[in-house]
Simulated assay, not measured.
Amino acid sequence: MIGITGATGHLGHLTIQALLDGGTPASEIVAIVRSPEKAADLAAKGVQVRHGDYAQPSTLSAALEGLDKLLLISSNDAADRLTPHLHVVEAARQAGVKLLTYTSILRADSSPLVLATDHKATEEAIRAAGLPFVFLRNGWYLENYNLPQAVQVGAIAGSAGEGRVSAASRADYAAAAAAVLTQPGQENKIYELGGDESFTLGELAAEVSAQSGKAVVYQNLPQEAYAGMLKGFGLPAPLAEMLADSDVWLEKGELYTSRRDLSTLIGRPTTSMQAGVQAALKG
């Protein structure tokens, strides 16, 4: 039995679909969700849906019962990812999960990004729990950029300068998760995952311009100004500050990788920036 936390989120949903497409029977997949009513489409495919909330440890014992493998998709709580993760790790230990796969961040053990702090601590907690693990150290997602909005305002803003980012699509990262959950011999492996090709945000803006037919430029801002702009758009302060911090470190190469762990795992090239732009603009 394979459990997927956060199964109604983008990455969780895509991972379940990748498992199904790869031949894993729906009866062997458990979707662990905070709101079971939102997983009706998964239940209709024969996937077992269980209630499990990161923030409510009492729900996790039943959710993880009988699982052989578990994919812990990291929390999206920018203020505190670690506490919910620790709840799941402890529940997995008590449930006797044989393989805990965790979606971390690129070079989590050495990354200076604020975002990496909770990921590093989660990895350490998984090791301390004595659980066989796989760390999927995901790089940036192509979907992190709101490109339709960029077309509307004529700009992509950031603090990344001429830094290069090795971004890939959510579907690429989901395919990698499905691969490690179904392939033997994955215990205690660490994968540094990123797109085969890197790009600058200026190059991204130029591609959006070319595909949309509208002028889109890259606007480079100081970190505080970029964070302030994001807060002005309604983003919570911790998230806005984390994104601005990530851009500053992007400029310094911390979201770039030359490794091909991702394309090797999924058995094909990763989604190109050009294809990502096309998908985003089609909606």
Results as ranks from 00 to 15, higher is better:
Met1Glu: 04
Ile2Glu: 06
Gly3Asn: 06
Ile4Cys: 00
His10Ser: 13
Leu14Gln: 14
Gly23Asn: 07
Val30Trp: 01
Val33Tyr: 00
Leu42Glu: 07
Ala44Pro: 06
Val47Glu: 07
Gln48Ser: 10
Val49Leu: 01
Ala55Cys: 03
Ala55Gln: 13
Ser58Glu: 15
Ala63Thr: 07
Leu64Arg: 12
Leu64Val: 11
Asp68Gln: 13
Asp68Phe: 02
Ile73Tyr: 10
His85Gln: 08
Val89His: 11
Ala92Val: 05
Val97Leu: 09
Ile105Ser: 13
Ala108Cys: 08
Ser110Asn: 02
Ser111Asn: 15
Val114Lys: 14
Thr117Ile: 07
His119Ala: 12
Glu124Ile: 11
Ala125Ile: 09
Ala125Lys: 11
Arg127Lys: 12
Arg127His: 13
Ala128Pro: 03
Leu131Met: 06
Tyr141Gln: 05
Val151Trp: 10
Ser159Gln: 07
Gly161Gln: 08
Gly161Thr: 15
Ala167Met: 06
Arg170Leu: 11
Ala178His: 00
Gln186Ser: 11
Gln186Leu: 06
Tyr191Ser: 08
Leu193Thr: 04
Gly194His: 04
Glu203Pro: 09
Leu204Ile: 00
Gln223Cys: 11
Ala227Thr: 07
Phe233Lys: 15
Leu235His: 02
Asp247Leu: 05
Leu250Pro: 00
Leu250Glu: 08
Glu251Ala: 15
Leu262Met: 09
Met273Ile: 10
Ala275Leu: 10
